[in-house]
Design a binder for these strands. Structure first.
Lengths: 119, 119, 119, 119
DNA sequence: GTGGTCTAGACCACG
DNA sequence: GTGGTCTAGACCACA
């Protein structure tokens, strides 16, 4: 499910983090689902356990995941994290639009692109 | 014209690079205009000359700027760089839209946002 | 009576421990009352018997509970444990107050908060 | 300035973190002040650089500190973090008061303690 | 020189 | 078995 790409400029821990977060926010992983253990995932991805641990820790700090010592790591109720994440993406959307318009792209072109993606 | 913010998470060389690129693509700096010398800019910004050097080098690699030994650095014809840059931004736009829709944001909501930003 | 919450950051043995201690110190459980057996409670809570065992052991070490081989665990005279516990909480109270005052919160504000909570 | 106590139940990285946060929020360290470098502090405290690094990283995630690669770590404008921290402490204050009252401590006793600490 | 990431592997706490 | 902390030391990006 999670993949690591050494060509990616993002650090590995963040690729793992982003991968899970996306799946959680998209509903692929649902509240209460158990994540693979740190050890299992680290061997599967052939990375250091610390690296996976850090990804999980940051997910937990964001409220996407909760960990129980001796039991495992689980998907948390996503509502809060989801709302924050959506707000962040909309902010990025706005600034991208602004930048594109500064380069001469018309809102009309962007609107057409929106429809294109709906297909 | 160019400013450096130490609290910005981007490295300084990239702030310098982004600042010039934006001005070039937006038409503030026009083809043939001369950029400040590495030495002058580095003292003005109170940063290491290497840092400015690297910003100029990357601008040149992108085709935004050309250097003439012993003369200085000049803004190149923007068309090529602009086209590439615009394509990159549009790609980011598409993937952002896709992700937002995965989170349940409707194209209608995004369209309204587009109009809001047109002001 | 006792509940376990896996989302709680405290380990389970401590949730069990704290739950009993609170009930004992508050007088819900009175000296001489019998606690449920380790086996019964562990099945009721669906946790490992070791976990309950440890909670009981620590309660006993604190003097909140005493065990009689072959009979069970019973609430001890609370006075000793209560005094120790109250002293500990008062200590925490003092250091909290000190820290809040260092941040500019006036004793007056805290006094008002005290009254608010009396309701 | 910062000390590590191996008897303390808190992990080392958190002792370092808490120590700096307290000094920052109390105004001992002021916005813009430079923190000791990761390497310097780690040798001074005789701990691993990673441990200090983690403390700094979490301070940065909280907005107490900002780090610039190649330059150092600096105290951020504390206002936001301070407000959040104070709210957290007041919450702890309330629940402590509630617990103490459940044990029979009167608000009057607590009020006297407040004045005692003012000295 | 600075901070940031990663590995290899240890030990602890918990169930 | 699980997650959490820590060490020792490497390598990279940046100034």
């Amino acid at each position: 499910m999670i993949q690591v790409n050494y060509q990616d400029s993002r650090p590995i821990y963040q690729q793992v983090h982003d991968g899970f977060r996306r799946q959680i926010l998209a509903g692929v992983l649902r509240p209460g689902d158990q994540l693979p253990s740190v050890r299992e995932l680290s061997t599967r991805l052939a990375v250091n356990p610390n690296t996976v641990q850090r990804a999980y820790r940051e997910l937990e700090q964001e409220g996407c995941v909760y960990s129980v010592r001796g039991k495992g790591s689980f998907v948390a109720d996503a509502s809060d994290a989801a709302r924050a994440h959506q707000a962040e993406l909309l902010g990025r959307f706005d600034s991208l639009v602004q930048e594109l318009q500064a380069l001469g792209v018309t809102p009309e072109q962007l609107r057409q692109r929106l429809e294109g993606g709906t297909t």
